[in-house]
Nucleic acid binder design. Structure first.
Lengths: 345, 345
DNA sequence: CGGCATTTTGCAACCGGTTGCAAAACGGGT
DNA sequence: ACCCGTTTTGCAACCGGTTGCAAAATGCCG
């Protein structure tokens, strides 16, 4: 009887058993399964045969104990209600898997203290953490860094002096782009319908939007916030705004919010883009659906995720790497909720 | 110097260091951190003090080596393009976290062989696996069971003789409910617009739908399939169907598909529910959005997830538990895409 | 075939914890 | 103070691997 009953009744084959069956030392078995180690072809064949016959595969957790790497990556987010983030999770999980890294998913909805999650992820010796959120306060990412865990803040606030590695867009610049886009189309009385006021993404987009508008005295700006990046919040807030005559065009916090706002506008008899213009942000899949057809600012999530993962790979080799911010440009995607650019003439 | 530089330059405090500082044995420290172990109050205080001063927290992976439990749960899915599943991931991650279990997320999109994922999850010694998918072939869940890993198939095919623990709805019954719903509203020429033909959910819903319709000879049924549970697939397929006159009412594979179908119908000048009725399935958040307002069959995901997690908890204590199927009823949610029930009288 | 440089292999210690067992400490009763 | 039953504690072995080091095996050359 070579095989053993594990703690849970699961057949579990260990290195030692393979070594015995192959008639070699345990180190030899270990070496054939760690690449870069010196093993003669003959030895390798013997071991592989025994391993195959026993159905052995090495215990990643046990080896992590000596190598100090688990290949576990904490994937931390609080955006579990925005379909846009499902696209992000998809890209992250696939990207990490391709590199042999395993995402340990942490849902921070409702969590206000980073402490617990930091402790938990340290207990599991994650090699690194990706904080993928546009709404979490920067303190969360920083808490990981202070705990000595390599961390990347994806979709977080871009700062020119980043405290932690940051990959994302420049929300201030986005706000400017939004303003310029609306102005170029001849809108004059503009409005900002932001996401949660506390989110840095909201603040930054607003400040860019404001800054650009402030340059032209003939422009008007009204500002309000929805409580969350959700359809309902967007719809409710727009509903509220419509108790007074609407602005000419709204730059909304994100696409879901925009869709909610659109719904309220249409229900109140406003035609979009005839009476009112709406501009979103993110360019989530849904924005392109017929029937929604939202003009929006595209956030290059593929590049952001890819770059985050590359950066994570680099940090694993060089944990004390100097923090850097990687910023990707956003571009406007023309669809049907803003009136067209006037013909050049 | 008590603290040590870990492999990655990370300060990492070990049990041994705590023991030394507290002036006790390593076992004593270990016991104060495993509940149920016998430790005197005095000892506990000493150890906790030292631990606090050093910032110690035990290494979950190291302990898993002897206890045989990692508290890691593989969360396996391939549905990363259906916003409905984001709601499911949200519920699963939170539910697991509350029980002190950690979801290791596996994205199986594009994977055809279960082997790789099974091996990977075994290497990480997961305590159990939740396969949360309505499209993965049953073989995936079974592969885990055969590898000796406790597995639960959530949102999978209900079978009266389940091979693995199954939690979800009875898709055949759902199909019947759909048919009865449409018939009761006076629709006669019915249609099934399913998801991927290979998905068991599609097959089962169809067979229930057919079975019910077959009982009334005056009813007509046409059947077609979209390639995926997505907006585009639904829209495309409906577009194609509209080259001929439409049926009176469509039972669609799921809500996203329905929304796609709706979009095609409206674009082709059909009024819903005036000319054509549409019935969805899932009752995802979006179905309730104003502007979509989809009549649909509610899938009780809260209960399904809660029950799955409970069951997982039970399996961890009793791995050889006899496979069971847990089935939750679906109910119709009246909204605006079917004409109302005729007045009784 | 011997001598030497170069792999390849096994030994043993270690990674960070847990746990059975026996010895030590404790507590209560007399 | 002593005895005995009950905690509490520490020792040492173990979980499943990795790795530095020295011994053994190999290859090459003269």
């Amino acid at each position: 009887m070579r095989s053993r009953e594990g703690k849970r009744g699961v057949m579990v084959v260990t290195l030692k058993e393979v070594a015995e069956r192959a008639g070699v030392s345990r180190s030899a078995v270990s070496r054939t399964f760690t690449d870069g180690a010196s093993v003669s072809p003959k030895m390798r064949r013997k071991v592989e045969k025994a391993a195959r016959e026993l159905g052995y595969s090495p215990n990643a957790l046990a080896s992590s104990l000596t190598t100090g790497r688990t290949k576990l990556i904490g994937l931390v987010s609080s955006n579990f209600h925005n379909p846009f983030f499902l696209e992000i999770f998809d890209l992250f999980t696939r990207g990490l898997q391709e590199r042999g890294l395993r995402p340990l998913l942490v849902n921070l909805s409702g969590e206000t203290e980073p402490e617990n999650s930091v402790r938990m992820l340290r207990q599991y010796s994650v090699d690194g953490v990706v904080v993928a959120s546009s709404t979490l306060p920067p303190g969360f990412a920083i808490a990981f860094r202070e705990a000595g865990v390599p961390v990347i803040n994806a979709f977080g606030r871009y700062a020119s002096d980043p405290q932690v590695h940051t990959v994302g867009i420049d929300n201030v610049a986005c706000g400017r782009t939004a303003a310029r886009t609306l102005i170029a189309r001849g809108y004059r009385r503009l409005a900002f319908l932001g996401g949660p006021e506390a989110a840095t993404s909201t603040q930054d987009r607003l400040s860019g939007f404001q800054a650009e508008i402030a340059q032209a005295p003939e422009l008007g700006l009204s500002v309000s916030f929805a409580g969350a990046y959700t359809f309902d919040a967007g719809r409710r807030e727009m509903q509220r705004l419509l108790q007074e005559p609407p602005a000419e065009a709204y730059f909304c916090g994100d696409d879901v919010l925009s869709i909610g706002a659109l719904s309220a506008l249409r229900d109140n008899g406003f035609s979009v883009p005839g009476d009112v213009g709406v501009l979103g942000l993110n360019d989530m899949e849904m924005a392109g659906w017929a029937g929604i057809d939202l003009t929006t600012i595209h956030q290059p999530i593929r590049q952001i995720v890819t770059s985050s993962i590359e950066l994570m790979g680099a940090m694993l080799d060089e944990p004390d790497r100097y923090p850097e911010a990687r910023v990707f440009p956003c571009r406007i995607v023309e669809r049907g909720t803003l009136r067209p650019l006037p013909e050049a003439g």
